[in-house]
Computed example of a mutant assay.
Amino acid sequence: MMDVIAQFMSDCRTASTYHEVEAKFKQAFRVFGAETGTVSCLGSTSNLLNSLKVVGSPDSEFVRNYAENNFIRYDPAAKKSVSTLSGFSWDECRFESRDDPRALHVLDVADDFGYKNGFVVPIHSGLGNFSVVTFTGDHLELNPTTRGCLHLIAIYYHVALERLMLIDTAVSKPELTARQKEVLRWVSAGKTDWEIGQILSISEATVNRHVERAKERIGVRTRAQAIVECLVNGIVSL
C-alpha cells in the first residue's frame, strides 16, 4: 500500500496542472475502495462553504441539493472537522449526533443519494482556516491501514492544490533558513528533538524553537503537516 502513497507523493511534486493532480488523486484513492474524493474549502465555524471540488463520479443532484439546503450549517462532519486533526468516519458522526435530528437528516440525505460510507480528513492551516477532504464509496472498508493511507492521500492532494494555487497567484511561500531546513530533514527521518540536538550540537529547546518557527513560516499547525509541505515543495528530501 505504501508504494501507492509514495507514487502519489511523487506525482504531486511534479504535477503542473490541476487536471494532473486530480487524475492522480482519483487513481490513488480508488485503490482503497473510495469512489469519490471531495475537497471543501471552508473559513471558520460560522462561514458557509466557500468552494467545493468533487473528483470521481459525484451525483450532481446531491451537490445541488446540499448547496440549496445550506446543509453546511448542520453537517456533523463539517462541525467535527473544526475541532480535530484526526480523520473520522460518517458512522462516528452519526453516533455523536444521534440526538440532533438536523445533523442526522444531512447524513440520511447523503445515504439516499447512495453515499453510504464516508471518511473525512480535516486539514487546518496556520491562519485559522481549514479544508475538509471527504472520501465516499459503497465498498469503503475503514480498517486502520485504509484510514491511514487515505489520510496521507488527502494531505498530499491538498498540499498539491495549494502549491498550484500559489503559482497561479504568483504568491511565494516564506523561505526557511538553512538551519530550519536541516532540523526538518532530521525530523522527517524520525529523529527526536534530543537526538537532533546531539547531531547538530545544539540544545533540545533550540531544536524545538527552529521547528516552531518553521511551522509559522510555512503556515501549518503540526510537524507532520510541515514535513509534508516541505517534501511536496522540494524544500527537504528524505
Rank of each mutant, 00 (worst) to 15 (best):
A6S: 06
A15E: 13
S16H: 05
T17A: 11
T17P: 11
T17F: 14
Y18L: 07
V21Y: 05
K26Y: 06
K26M: 05
Q27D: 10
V31K: 06
V31F: 15
S40I: 05
C41Y: 13
S46M: 09
N47M: 09
E61S: 09
A67P: 04
I72A: 11
Y74S: 06
D75F: 02
T84I: 01
F88E: 05
S89M: 02
R94V: 07
R94Y: 12
D99W: 11
A110V: 04
D111Y: 12
F113Q: 07
V120Q: 11
V120T: 15
S125E: 07
G126V: 05
G128V: 04
G128H: 07
F135P: 04
T136D: 13
E141W: 13
R147Q: 12
G148R: 06
C149F: 09
I153N: 00
A160Y: 05
A160W: 01
L166D: 14
T169W: 14
P174E: 10
L176M: 06
K181I: 10
S188D: 15
A189K: 09
G190S: 05
W194V: 14
L200Q: 10
S201I: 05
S203I: 00
E204Q: 13
A205M: 11
A205E: 15
V211K: 15
I218W: 00
T222D: 10
I227R: 08
I227G: 02
V228S: 07
E229S: 01
I235Q: 09
V236L: 03
S237N: 10
